[in-house]
Design a protein around this nucleic acid. Structure first.
Lengths: 394, 394
DNA sequence: AGTTAGTTCGTCAAGTTACCGAACTAACTG
DNA sequence: CAGTTAGTTCGGTAACTTGACGAACTAACT
């Protein structure tokens, strides 16, 4: 079907006439006319006016009808649950944030379901127009069982079928994906990278992990464990048995590492943000701690670049995106790799995973609606306005 | 066109009837009949007999006509040039090996062209039936200029357009690709891995490098430098400026590293194979040298697994495939990664790149013949007999 | 051995789908 | 008015499907 191509042309090129769509897609004018008529009658696109001032007959221009359907993107964190409702253009309509229910397990399912239902009500949209929900989780979803493995901060989430239960409660399609993977997709979508660029999102927070987008697709790996950079074999001694529990790199390049290193140097236990504050005042122990951690993260970045050779490595996460650390990482990394390397700060901050959820949802929606039965179709969702996502950051 | 699907079904499922092809491809019987008639008349497939003993009418079975076209796979090494001629089923017909012309540059082009022409003569095949040649080179082909960058062992190869010149001399399509990348494709094709399995081929010889197959496709990276594991930031001090010339890992995990380490321990300069021999006699210095090198290669393997999470890492290269080293690598790697990991010895040995060239050539041939103009078509070349490749190893 | 039922192969004819090309009408600029 | 562009109508085609049917075979029964 050319339907898919037509939808994409309209989505990408904003308000556009049928004649132009025909040129872009390479189909004939009346093939396009037929499809457009069809799409308009089913409500997916709408006419929004005329061209004017050009020579020749005025053209009717069409655009994706934003309110034809909605998608929900959920970021389930250890501390907070964030839910956003977006329209078909990827514009955020409403956002809702709550503390994560500490009971875990089914309580989480109930919480997410309630939040998704109430956000559609808040936005004043009929619930039936919600077509899909994507949930980012801090762990590895098991595609067989739907359980979330390796998620220490949320209890009992590895004992239930999150996707299945949510699907039942919400009565819409549900996709569950690792939050760092979603963040990588989000940055790839909105972070000023080409559609074909390979990018890696490196998240540094309580742990360290990477999401990898190659050829527009997430690299998942055999066990869904691609990007587990915490187990890179340097930092702490990788051959020490203790490195089998907490990875060798993770021991020296995450929240706990900063706290512990500062403690070792000074005998004083401070929180991460206190240590950052101390560094800003020029305290040498704090500065040395940050230097040391940045050095290890820089090595991780170089390891990723040596193996993947991406267009850019985007660094995010609660501590990774702090400029003081980022500058040090960039500086150190450039010292141990022969070519120029591109390390960037996340442009989406805490909303990277949410944005990734939105693009995943929209992609899935387009596939199911317009490419049913087609084997391999490249579907590109045009980037939304980045401000939609960043502005909402609380 | 369904033509592509029909060809694949016949290629994959050996001698097969039209009715079975219809079932496999999901097309109707006479669509298949038409296409088969067409393919038979153009010579790409041939009838080879009847089914028998089954209930019902006998079926005429067809197979790919092996001699409809041929492809050449060339492995250009620093010391040797290896050329093989294969038929459409991926069976090696003839192999030719020569020392690499030491003059480099255009002399290499002339040498390869001469060898390719003479091998078709040797095999007694009309030159016009040769459709494509794939050349594996120890360096990074620049897709713009056709020059081969970073190829220290072959002189002046970075100053000429290898692909273009060969295409002109041979008058067939020519693809030039990095040899480790081809080896990765070869192992992926013949090494008992699933079509969708991600595998990494790690070559350890004069240098260390990896070829990465993800989702059936080579991972190339922004600069074509994916898999440059020599620059992984451990082994030697990665922040030392000397690690910008020879990568930190490459300094301790390749031919020279073995020689130098043994020299440092004993004061004696031996070749790599002499050191392996010494290790076999139980000489402790040699054993310790191998242990130390294996330890670093194991770290490289773990780094790859942590980032890519492939189904398997296949180790090859002149020293990587030596069992003494491989056993040590496997053992050390398992000690610093929490999950079970699959490290395998190359099954193709020196013929991995050749096999990769063959599958690349056959793939390209199928695309150009049967999928012309189609956007994205998965084309799977059924594995050939691995013996065809390994047996020829000299 | 002969008959009959059941199965599968391959073909024929008619219909469907998704597209295209060319001619045509509509609406605008200058 | 001519010139230009937008959209429609009409007819046509390539690729595929569906369903009916004869040919060729096996198996089982008489």
């Amino acid at each position: 079907m050319s339907q898919c191509a037509v939808v994409q042309a309209i989505a990408n090129c904003g308000p556009i006439s049928r004649a132009s769509v025909a040129k872009i897609t390479g189909r004939s004018k009346q093939t396009v006319s037929e499809i457009v008529a069809n799409l308009e009658s089913t409500g997916w696109i709408q006419a929004v006016g005329h061209t004017e001032g050009h020579i020749g007959r005025r053209a009717i221009v069409y655009e994706i009808s934003p309110s034809a359907a909605y998608v929900a993107s959920v970021d389930l964190g250890g501390a907070r649950v964030r839910v956003t409702l977006c329209d078909l253009t990827g514009t955020v309509l409403t956002e809702l944030v709550e503390p994560t229910n500490p009971n875990g397990g089914m309580a989480i399912v109930d919480q997410i379901a309630r939040m998704v239902r109430s956000i559609t009500a808040l936005a004043g949209k009929p619930y039936d127009d919600l077509h899909i929900a994507v949930v980012g989780v801090p762990g590895v979803p098991d595609p067989e069982t739907g359980a979330i493995m390796m998620s220490p901060n949320i209890c009992n989430i590895d004992r239930i079928d999150l996707a299945g239960n949510l699907r039942r409660q919400l009565d819409v399609n549900v996709i569950v994906e690792n939050d760092v993977n979603l963040a990588a997709r989000g940055e790839h979508w909105l972070g000023n990278h080409g559609e074909q660029d390979d990018i890696v999102y490196l998240s540094v927070g309580t742990g360290i992990g990477a999401g990898i987008v190659v050829g527009g697709q997430l690299l998942r790996g055999r066990n869904g464990a691609a990007g587990e950079v915490g187990f890179l074999p340097f930092g702490a001694d990788p051959f020490d048995p203790s490195s089998l529990k907490t990875g060798a790199l993770e021991q020296v390049a995450a929240t706990n590492a900063i706290i512990r290193q500062y403690l070792a140097r000074t005998g004083v236990r401070k929180t991460v943000s206190e240590i950052f504050d101390a560094a800003e005042t020029g305290e040498s122990n704090a500065l040395e701690t940050l230097d040391s951690v940045a050095r290890q993260i820089a090595r991780a970045t170089v390891a990723i670049i040596a193996i993947i050779d991406p267009s850019a490595v985007v660094i995010g996460g609660s501590i990774g995106q702090r400029t003081e650390l980022l500058d040090r990482i960039t500086h150190q990394a450039s010292k141990c790799f022969p070519r120029k390397i591109r390390i960037e700060k996340t442009r989406l901050g805490a909303h990277a995973a949410i944005a990734g959820g939105v693009v995943t949802a929209l992609h899935q929606l387009h596939v199911s609606l317009f490419a049913a039965g087609q084997s391999t179709t490249e579907i590109i969702i045009p980037p939304s306005e980045i401000e939609n996502f960043v502005a909402g950051a609380a």
